[in-house]
């Protein structure tokens, strides 16, 4: 796997040199090296996430085996992509995206959580694009289909993967300021989103969150109240939360 990624990376560097965009590639690599995993979610999920053990004691939990079996059924009936990309463990995955500026995928929720490296470094892998695009690119629904190796990597090599994947999009006219949006861009809908997908094995706990931002307007009074509560609960736990709706 490493050798395959090495090959893809080397090819990208050679391509950049040939087209005179090596400085841009270096800039991109620098950004990617310090990038983070971000998880987008609706504000009601964030609010529930911020309520600690004191609140949970007033709720009743499903037994783990019952919960797991039910969850697996919903995943299975959602589509075939997850299972093709994560055979046998798709229900255990939390999807995230690579972000170099902390912004997330707003089409999946108003809220963006930036996850601390240390909490996911040993349980996250990165894919060149989102699972649906990856599935279609390699026609993974086909019988005996196999993905081309070298386009997924461990967390520590995300910069190399990003360089290999994104260099073809660099041109001599690419402004440096647009590099962050080359890595992650929220489109008008989920189908238009462009990003490198991070697959985190297991649940992301609040303790793993470095900061939280509100990236999209909240349209209902209820959701504004939920943000207000979540923001205060986050502050009590020392997690910075900021409102990016206003510059």
């Amino acid at each position: 796997m490493h050798a395959d990624l090495d090959r893809n990376y080397t090819a990208a560097v050679a391509d950049a040199d040939a087209r005179g965009v090596r400085p841009l590639l270096d800039g991109l690599a620098t950004l990617l090296a310090s990038s983070s995993a971000v998880v987008a979610m609706p504000v009601n999920v964030l609010r529930a996430m911020t309520l600690g053990a004191a609140y949970r004691s007033y709720h009743r939990a499903l037994a783990d085996d019952v919960r797991g079996a039910a969850e697996e059924i919903y995943h299975r009936h959602r589509g075939v992509v997850d299972e093709a990309v994560h055979p046998g463990y798709s229900a255990d995955i939390t999807n995230a995206a690579i972000s170099v500026d902390g912004r997330g995928l707003n089409n999946y929720g108003e809220i963006t959580l930036r996850i601390g490296d240390v909490f996911i470094a040993d349980r996250a892998t990165v894919m060149r694009e989102n699972a649906f695009a990856f599935y279609e690119r390699y026609d993974l629904g086909r019988r005996d289909a196999q993905e081309v190796p070298g386009w997924r990597c461990v967390w520590q090599r995300r910069a190399d993967l990003g360089v290999a994947h994104l260099t073809p999009y660099l041109t001599s006219g690419t402004p440096v300021t647009t590099l962050p949006s080359l890595v992650l861009q929220s489109g008008t809908g989920r189908d238009d989103d462009r990003f490198m997908e991070v697959h985190i094995f297991g649940v992301v706990a609040l303790a793993a969150v470095e900061n939280v931002s509100l990236d999209r307007p909240l349209v209902t009074p209820d959701s504004q109240d939920e943000w207000n509560i979540a923001r205060q609960k986050l502050a009590a736990q020392g997690i910075p939360a900021r409102d990016r709706r206003v510059p």
Binding site: V39, M49, R60, N95, V203
Partner: peptide, 19 residues
């Protein structure tokens, strides 16, 4: 139609889920 994470959040962040 839920995203993958919607289902994950539902069961892991829902505080209480009942059939």
């Amino acid at each position: 139609r839920p995203s993958h994470n919607d289902i994950q959040f539902f069961f892991n962040r829902g505080l209480e889920v009942r059939p």
